[in-house]
Write a protein that binds this DNA or RNA. Structure first.
Lengths: 319, 319
DNA sequence: TGGCGCACTGACAACGTTGTCAACAGCGAT
DNA sequence: ATCGCTGTTGACAACGTTGTCAGTGCGCCA
């Protein structure tokens, strides 16, 4: 910038004015400056600008894994909203590891992001408190975080309830639940929905029909249930990866899965799912964030998005 | 930092030393400083640090669309390599729009990223020249960019050649090619591979069996070919989205697709594909970038990664 | 002619760090 | 007692911006 000022024969401040399109610069002068900028290939140093002004026009996004289609859809939505607000996105995958999540978040904060969209892996976010006090906004998405802040969730319990009820309506009495580790919020909620649906239909809850854990264990768990003495006739799966794992076992039994996925309609039979809308989730969270950034300091909000049952065949197999 | 210095009763510089774990600070003093840091919830301002030191420990990643599984795999790989080198990733989707790509790249540059991994949508990258001269490293991934720089590609022509040859070996003589717009580098290369395979087998090249364009047009294009008077008996598809679009048309004819995708093995018949490795692509590009950042100033490299034919049934249907 | 306001421009400090260099005390060697 | 050395600490400038405030020249009105 100093070089540009020199080249154009004006003061530093005048260049700054031109770069920021501030009013009150003689068009002729502005022209000389613009020419000098062009000639020297000058580009404003954003770090210095941030240092002076406080805002970075950058937000941070922490998700579990970009490579998971659910989160990549969410990512894209957040990115689009950010771009519309003139911001960029620093993103990172926590891999469901609270330590890595913490490191990412703190790294984002020390780079002075304006705000954060977090799909929390951990449950303790006290370390965020000083940052929030310092003016960084935060929105939790998909799961609630460890402190009072804006949160956007899906109706996990309601969706699971709808999916399991659907199986019950088709005559099933022994329905397995295979889901994520119970420690994950969404998994717990979905299990609640499952139990509520059973209870409403007057069916007993049988712990031997419930398996929770990472997706790799889903197949073996189902195999064990099926070789037991009171095997299930239907399965409700707790997330997309687990649904696929169950499909790979090759058993042909009634199935409803939480999360929609590409090609679910092309399999035979088509896979009935309870669909969430990751794009809407991301969009809602990001918009809420930018509302906060533009000065809305009301009490934290909690938004719950609906789910949608999509029958495709696998959930309509008779019991 | 000033507050911390005051609270600990030391000079600014001493706090800086402690924060940066520089040697030569009395352990007792360091203890007082650490305590003050803890007490005040201090965190170093990275913008100021960048301003002073020049390195941001941040790289930029420009891809076509995070929501596409191919690119989300690549993203995750880049992110992991970056994290291993203590860097964060600013990422953005260009949506195959050269203007948006340019905006993203320049925005990254003005935030002084150390380097860029770019999946180029445009072909003109002259605007990058001053940035490269200013020391920002750049690696093109998946496609070559508009200037001399490190590039990591897949063996597009070879992969297409292998896929088409596979169909020919199974007796097909009229093989359609349905791919991306020919203006996209990878699409052009794959078309070359297709033509080379035909030529080697002594088969004629029939333009009426070739369709290029966005994925939405793939289904209609195939339908048109099949209702013509010399319909194809097999199809080679130029990318994952187009493969899926062709599958949705419901025609049962021999098919080999470029790009592997989840569930390809669960469809009936399984979908034979030419698999690229997006994770390896991302990893290779990012590692090359960090090699440059750590001082390797050799001439630009061009790496070509192999592809792999995975027979699953659809490509082995008789002609 | 003097005074006033307007349009434009510039000098300077400050943002929060870190690199450079100097200062200081304590200590063993001369 | 002096010197030089080591270990520790601090003062100060600089990084590239922008906000504040103070000019400067010019036209216009009284």
């Amino acid at each position: 910038m100093k070089d540009v000022a020199e080249a154009a024969g004006v003061a530093l401040k005048t260049v700054s004015r031109v770069v920021n399109e501030e009013p009150g610069v003689n068009p002729a002068t502005a022209g000389r400056v613009t020419a000098a900028i062009e000639r020297l290939g000058y580009r404003r140093n954003e770090s210095a600008r941030v240092l002076r002004r406080g805002r970075t026009a950058t937000i941070g996004l922490v998700i579990e894994d970009v490579a998971d289609p659910f989160y990549s859809g969410l990512s894209r939505a957040v990115e689009d909203v950010a771009l519309r607000h003139g911001s960029l996105v620093l993103s990172g995958s926590s891999g469901e590891d609270p330590r890595r999540e913490r490191e990412l978040i703190l790294a984002f904060c020390s780079r002075r992001v304006d705000g954060l969209v977090i799909v929390p892996a951990g449950t303790d976010h006290d370390y965020l408190r000083p940052e929030l006090d310092a003016g960084i906004a935060a929105v939790f998405a998909d799961r609630p975080g460890g402190l009072e802040a804006d949160t956007v969730l899906c109706d996990n319990a309601g969706g699971a309830h709808a999916g399991v009820s659907h199986l019950i309506r088709h005559g099933h009495r022994r329905i397995a639940f295979i889901g994520d580790s119970a420690s994950i919020f969404t998994a717990g909620e979905r299990l609640h929905g499952y139990r509520r649906a059973l209870a409403e239909a007057g069916l007993p809850f049988d712990p031997s029909l419930v398996a929770t854990g990472p997706a790799e264990q889903a197949g073996p768990a189902l195999n064990r249930m099926l070789s037991g003495d009171a095997p299930p006739t239907a399965v409700f799966t707790g997330n997309g990866r687990i649904t696929v794992a169950v499909l790979r076992t090759g058993h042909r039994l009634a199935l409803v899965g939480f999360d929609d996925f590409e090609l679910a309609d092309l399999l035979v039979p088509g896979v009935t799912v309870v669909a969430q809308d990751p794009v809407r989730l991301g969009r809602t969270a990001a918009e809420l964030l930018f509302r906060r950034l533009s000065g809305d300091h009301g009490t934290p909000e909690r938004v719950e998005l609906p789910t949608r049952l999509i029958p495709r065949g696998s959930g309509e197999l008779p019991g």
